[in-house]
Computed example of a mutant assay.
Amino acid sequence: MKKTVTIRVIVGVVVGIFMVSAWAHDGKPDWSNLKLFSTAVFVCTAMFNVWDFLLWRLPWIQRIPGAGIPRSLRGTWKGTLTSFWIDPATGSNPPPKTVYLVVQQTASLITVKLMTDESKSTSALAMVSEVDGSVMLTYMYLNKPDLRVDHRSRIHHGSTVFDVSGNPARRLKGHYWTDRDSKGELDFVERNKKNLADDFTEAVELFGGTT
Rank of each mutant, 00 (worst) to 15 (best):
Ser32Tyr: 13
Ile61Pro: 00
Asp146Lys: 11
Thr116Glu: 09
Thr39Trp: 15
Phe188Leu: 08
Ala107Ile: 05
Ser153Lys: 03
Thr6Ile: 15
Phe188Ile: 10
Phe162Tyr: 12
Gly91Trp: 13
Leu54Lys: 07
Thr4Met: 05
Pro96Arg: 02
Met140Val: 12
Ile61Gly: 03
Leu142Trp: 01
Asn93Arg: 15
Phe37Ile: 05
Phe42Gly: 08
Pro145Ala: 02
Thr45Cys: 14
Ala46Val: 14
Asp199His: 12
Thr111Ala: 14
Asp150Gly: 01
Ser92Leu: 14
Met1Gln: 07
Glu190Asn: 13
Leu206Ser: 04
Ala24Ile: 07
Val164Asp: 00
Met19Arg: 13
Asp26Leu: 10
Asp181Glu: 14
Gly209Met: 04
Met136Gln: 08
Lys35Ile: 15
Asp87Trp: 04
Ser121Cys: 05
Thr76Glu: 13
Met127Thr: 12
Asp179Leu: 03
Phe42Val: 07
Val43Asp: 07
Asp117Ala: 08
Pro145Gly: 01
Thr45Gly: 15
Met136Ser: 04
Gly158Gln: 02
Trp77Phe: 05
Phe162Gly: 04
Glu118Lys: 12
Gly133Thr: 04
Ser121Ile: 01
Pro65Asp: 03
Gly209Asn: 10
Ala124Leu: 08
Lys193Phe: 05
Val99Met: 05
Gly166Ile: 03
Gly68Cys: 11
Val128His: 00
Val149Ile: 09
Asp146Tyr: 13
